[in-house]
Design a protein around this nucleic acid. Structure first.
Lengths: 233, 233
DNA sequence: TGAATAGTGTCTTTCAGACAATATGCC
DNA sequence: GGCATATTGTCTGAAAGACACTATTCA
């Protein structure tokens, strides 16, 4: 029997939920998708998209399902973040949530987005409204994880289209890290990683010189450095 | 109402468990604590110490409680690993487990260990018996996390006594990483981090020159490098 | 006094970080 | 032709990595 809510709005048993921190870059800033809650508690407040895990699906599948209800895109980068299990994080009763974060490219998202029943909106992560439950903490955790992971994996590429310019790639790093990077050092570093392939195409942006488009040679997100502070390579 | 098991041994509702990968160094090898299962399923098989989360406690507290049932030590380094939520990972029904890993110093452990009702034993991580459920996967995940984290945090220190020699510290790194390290480079690196304080005490080990004992200056596990492959420092 | 581990220094190479001028397409 | 962004190279300093000998204690 799955966890359900009784007429008082209290869950019976352990309810397991998933919450997804869905991020994209839009207009040069990092944005987070929030949905407006239509029911108590926190009715009218903004919250992370998410919901209960059904008895027959894996937790990962539940997160994927929630994500696809919002985006209708497959093949999204989705990573489990952390499980929040404080007894009183949900006023209705015991709800343990497994948090995930996901990165999407805005262009792909917008093309496939469909009409929603509940209100949803993108907010700049630097100016978020008050969030329901402990969702603010989850968002902060996701941003911290992302800022760490961008340094030693290729997660940053998930925010871009299949073809991208080096300036766009640098912009994605700058937005996530919240700081400007030196263009020459950034390009040198990226190109010497050997994971980018220049195409013959260029992107014209206005009346200036068009930029070469690159593609990512790896099929998925990879780890960049095995070396650490101790292990020799 | 908490998740319980009915006479058929099937859980009703979502049962949430915690499993703990408890590691120590003994005799120069990394060892894992396993307990023998006394009930079906997997009766007689070795498994990670763990159990169900009760309705009133946080998931972290449940992990801590399980750990203290095994070790009777407080102040252990305990970190949440990952949540495993496949529907069929437990033949009795739906059990979602939140995995943790913990590191203890063998000397402290042994002093405070108490009699157990269930059989428990340390196994070298390189030669583990077949494990119940998906516990093997959890162990592998923990070891991978540990190998990563030792490179940019001070988790490795958790395996040592309060005072330790640099050779012991190096040994802890070598055992976790599974490779030999250069003594001079290791010492240079460790000392220049500025987190070790030499004491006036020495440790005599036999008929050779005694080694200086050091202590760790930080109150807890810290992150060592903010710098990554992109961010300047 | 010798067995056994502790402890130390240098050189080379790699890479991060700072820094500015030229190239090119389009209006 | 000029505007706006794309693209490119060098120098310096810090740290990693390779490498071998001396110091010290105690049995």
């Amino acid at each position: 029997m799955p966890a359900t809510s009784n007429p008082n709005g209290h869950f019976t048993g352990h309810a397991i939920a998933v919450d997804v921190v869905l991020l994209t870059i839009l207009g040069g800033t990092l944005k987070l998708l929030l949905v407006k809650r239509e029911q108590a508690p926190y009715r009218g407040a903004w919250a992370l998209p998410g919901g209960l895990v059904s008895p027959e699906e894996s937790v990962d599948d539940a997160a994927l399902r929630e994500l696809q209800e919002e985006t209708n895109i497959g093949n999204i980068y989705l990573e489990q973040l952390y499980t929040f299990g404080e007894p009183n994080r949900d006023p209705r009763g015991r709800v343990i949530t497994v948090a995930y974060y996901a990165l999407v490219n805005w262009q792909q998202f917008q093309l496939k987005a469909r009409q929603r029943v509940t209100e949803a909106s993108w907010f700049p992560v630097k100016r978020l409204p008050p969030l329901a439950f402990d969702h603010r903490r989850i968002v902060d955790y996701a941003l911290e994880r992302l800022r760490n992971k961008i340094n030693y994996t290729t997660v940053g590429f998930q925010l871009l289209s299949r073809q991208f310019t080096l300036t766009e790639l640098q912009g994605s790093y700058e937005v996530i890290l919240g700081q400007r990077l030196d263009k020459r050092n950034f390009r040198r570093k990226m190109l010497q990683l050997g994971i980018l392939k220049g195409t013959r195409d260029f992107k014209a942006n206005g009346r200036q010189r068009p930029a070469r488009l690159y593609t990512f040679t790896e099929p998925k997100v990879i780890k960049l450095q095995e070396k650490g502070i101790i292990v020799p390579y």
